[in-house]
């Protein structure tokens, strides 16, 4: 009786071994193959994810990218395009990212212009978008255009400045909002025969957030306007100033003040 029981027990164990052997080996093979495949696919020969977006940039490059967006915005005043570009970086809050970067730049001793550019764009993007449609990050970037109605400006001061300490032909411009507060980030258009130049207020923050300037040449007559429909300061040519002490003359400049209507 005992022998029979032992034989049954051994038979059952052998059956389990066969069963284990039957499934264990393929399972081990499968797992080993899977691990090998993942090692090859992720480590040895990864399939490059081609064409990453700016969101994949390293943190320091993202900082450079943001600063470049801010510089381009200061140069063009194109907030729509700046918003699209910021969206490409996939920051959860682009304005907060700009402010945080400007604070880091300030702490690191970066130039005031860098801090100002970042802060200015942060302030601009915090304002409600011009349209209810969010910028489409996949749209063709250069095609993106803002649809807001631009503010109009009037020329409230156009006066000659005679100060021998200033560079000859220096034209100082100040742009204010309707509450007479300095307005940064405004693009001005300076034109002369055969040429034009765009200026932006706020790029010399030490002289005021709404300040911009340029130096006139004696060969041209200039006009300054805040496009597209602002009043024009025209007929700007080098004014002749008299030096009371020496009785001689020197070239002066202008002060122009534009105010938002």
């Amino acid at each position: 009786m005992k022998r029979v029981r032992r034989a049954r027990v051994f038979s059952t164990l052998e059956g389990k071994d066969r069963l284990a052997s039957r499934w264990l080996e393929p399972l081990l093979g499968l797992l080993l193959g899977l691990a090998l495949g993942l090692w090859v696919a992720w480590g040895l020969a990864p399939r490059a994810q081609v064409d990453p977006s700016p969101a994949a940039l390293r943190a320091d490059y993202k900082d450079e990218y943001r600063l470049l967006i801010a510089s381009a915005y200061a140069a063009t005043g194109d907030l729509g395009r700046a918003r699209v570009r910021l969206n490409l970086l996939a920051d959860p809050d682009p304005a907060a990212a700009l402010l945080e970067q400007s604070e880091r730049a300030l702490a690191a001793g970066a130039s005031p212009q860098t801090v100002f550019l970042l802060s200015m764009l942060a302030g601009a993007v915090q304002q409600p978008a011009a349209t209810s449609t969010p910028p489409d990050a996949t749209a063709s970037l250069p095609a993106a255009q803002p649809t807001a109605t631009p503010p109009s400006f009037r020329l409230v001061v156009q006066q000659t400045v005679c100060d021998a300490a200033l560079p000859a032909g220096l034209t100082q411009i100040e742009v204010r909002d309707a509450a007479k507060q300095p307005l940064p980030g405004v693009t001005l258009l300076v034109t002369w025969e055969g040429g034009q130049q765009r200026l932006n207020t706020g790029l010399k923050p030490e002289l005021g957030a709404g300040y911009a300037d340029f130096v006139m040449s004696a060969d041209f007559v200039y006009a300054v306007q805040i496009p597209p429909s602002g009043e024009v300061a025209e007929g700007l040519s080098l004014p002749v100033c008299m030096d009371d002490e020496t009785g001689g003359s020197y070239s002066g400049g202008y002060l122009l003040i534009f105010e938002q209507k």
Binding site: P26, L30, G33, A41
Partner: peptide, 11 residues
């Protein structure tokens, strides 16, 4: 065979 199957799945 199972090793190759796993390899293919991993890849």
């Amino acid at each position: 065979l199972f090793l190759l199957l796993g390899l293919a799945a991993g890849l």
